[in-house]
Amino acid sequence: MDAFLAFFADIDWPEIWQATLDTLQMLGWSMFFTVLLGLPLGVLLFLTGKRQLLEQPIVYGLLSFLVNVLRSIPFIILLILMIPVTVWLIGTSLGVEGAIPPLVVGAAPFLARLVETALREVDRGIIEATQAMGASLWQIVTRTLLPEALPGLIAAATVTAIALVSYTAMAGVIGGGGLGDLAIRFGYQRFQTNVMVVTVVLLLILVQVLQMVGDRLVVKFSRR
């Protein structure tokens, strides 16, 4: 027991606490903007797709290509490529704020694809029935498509949030802060294995909690 406590003796707990807050902040803000961008993009991908309500092969092709390009860039490289854009957007590429634009650009296309897939699961007959009631396109999306796909959308958001957790760990590379940054600076570069262990455990707990909450919500909203 003493040896166990001694292993963690030289850890700077306030610093770990600060890094945890940074990670949660990055996660919260980037998730907010990811949903804000990714959800409409996913809806648009779905609607302009083949044999859908707004079938537009050219628009779909362009959006799909953009999403594929962004998803194929490794996140570590996207972080660096995004630096000028981030500076232009918010004036700095450092700290928690500086990490949010690349996180959103990395995660929104991912979420958009998942949203498109979730919407495709909605029975075409239900969409047709809504049309037959005299619904407008906006009503079809907001009253039928999104509510019917809700469990799938929550699952998509959960997967995206977890992907964002691992992205935030890379944000340290551009000075983004957070638990991942701490693990690299102390755990890897200064051989402080104990810091590495603590950060990994904290990240693990975060992922577990996200998955659990997501799963609960999916069950709560599944009516099939």
Binding site: D123, G125, I126, E128, A132, M133, G134, A135, P147, L150
Partner: peptide, 20 residues
Amino acid sequence: LRAFRRRVGMIFQHFNLLSS
């Protein structure tokens, strides 16, 4: 067309009710 469709009801083989 939307106003017209409100004056025409429709039912389906697989019911097409909103499960949510």
